[in-house]
Design a binder for these strands. Structure first.
Lengths: 232, 232
DNA sequence: CTGCATCCGCCTCGATACTG
DNA sequence: CAGTATCGAGGCGGATGCAG
């Protein structure tokens, strides 16, 4: 049995279930739909196979993940219930995304989660559903905005209102408030196919106009200790 | 340097900062305001002093916690930014809160977080601010509902619209959908001072009428494995 | 080749004792 | 009271092995 906190507290209980290392990242992967063990392992660079196995067993025991036919694992409704929590955590994590893209592993699917976490339903009134196709480093998906709901679907859209082509690093710089969307467009870091007006509307769905939605906490801002500290 | 996932992903980055054991519980304690090391240790039953020290150092290095005058620690604005994430996690954790109150440690302050996580702004229209005082197992605090915001303050209220007296276990049973508020009131598990109508209004701020907001996942629901599994 | 169990070195964690 | 030092136990990371 895994380590528990032994606090009669909703947060501590949640962490008893999904607080261990790698667990929430496993859930992150499955948010996009069921996956096989191998795919899961491929999209979680660094995880030992044995640990992934253990996590899946644990999550199944809690009813968060279920094993479907043919060695595929998917979230139960309970597991999908973690979506808002993961969204808020991801949104907060944008404060700390590194300025320079490090040699970290990356999968374009990550940014779908980030986009979801920044979605502000209510900004940008749209009558019918709006469809935006994204092409990020070879990966294609599209967002469907309908009223107050946002869905992201893998693959190209049939007839998108806008097509956006860019790279992950640029998206991160925009999301963390270090690059304004208009600048990204003018400098060619973001290329669009469609009306400029539609681009602005798309942007307004995720961030307030002229404002940095997620102020970035730089590497020096990380150190709040006033005086000199031992650097070992 | 703590272990990092090495994923260029907002969620993984957040977990790099607050994903280690005990870290989010330290933040939970500080959400109510700055605390001294000793208080913090007392309200986190089970944490080793050395680990609390390490966590505080780490959080300070990231700018999430800052040391105030006289050995007191408080959240920075960045730290308070974790509020929605902790709220969503706590809300999800309500699915797993044990049916029987175990011998777990408990502090009434925990339930303030749970109440926050269940708050549904927009339910129950109130013109002026509504003030509800809670007395839970000797601990007194009051909620101030004003429009779409909810604040909870330690200590008694001056002139509350309603006074609620109950125990933690009953609150958990209500929150996890196993006990309806009206039943709790009728059976005397919850005692109120004020109008019954005001009680209903208070309830409607946190849960939909006649509906279980957080379906409980019982100990048997935890096992989704169809067949018999080895029990060691 | 995929899915997962096993083994081992290392680092984190948990408990206690110790210092300013 | 605030925080540090020490040490055993156990979770984690990486490599290997085996069954379907």
């Amino acid at each position: 049995m895994s380590r528990k906190y032994g606090h009669y507290c909703a947060l501590a209980t949640a962490l008893d279930v999904v607080g261990e290392r790698w667990t929430l990242l496993v859930v992150r992967e499955l948010l996009g739909g069921p996956l096989r063990f191998g795919q899961l392992k491929n999209e979680l660079p660094g995880i030992p196979g044995s640990l992934l196995s253990a996590r899946l067993q644990g999550l199944m025991a809690y009813g968060v993940v279920e094993q479907l036919d043919g060695h595929t694992y998917g979230l139960t409704p309970l597991g999908y219930g973690l979506t808002p929590a993961l969204g808020e955590l991801a949104r907060w994590g944008l404060h700390f995304i590194e300025e320079q893209r490090p040699d970290d592993a990356f999968h374009p699917r990550w940014i779908q989660l980030a986009l979801h976490s920044m979605f502000r339903p209510g900004n940008g009134e749209s009558d019918g559903p709006a469809v935006y196709e994204f092409r990020v480093e070879g990966y294609i998906f599209h967002l469907i905005v309908e009223g107050k709901t946002l869905r992201s679907v893998d693959g190209p859209a049939g007839d998108p209102d806008l097509l956006v082509k860019t790279d992950a690093y640029t998206l991160v710089r925009i999301a963390s408030g270090r690059l304004r969307p208009a600048e990204a467009l003018d400098s060619g870091l973001v290329k669009i196919m469609g009306e400029r007006e539609e681009f602005d509307r798309c942007v307004s769905l995720f961030m307030e106009a002229g404002d940095t939605p997620i102020p970035y906490v730089g590497p020096d801002g990380h150190r709040r200790r006033a005086a000199v500290t031992k650097e070992t």
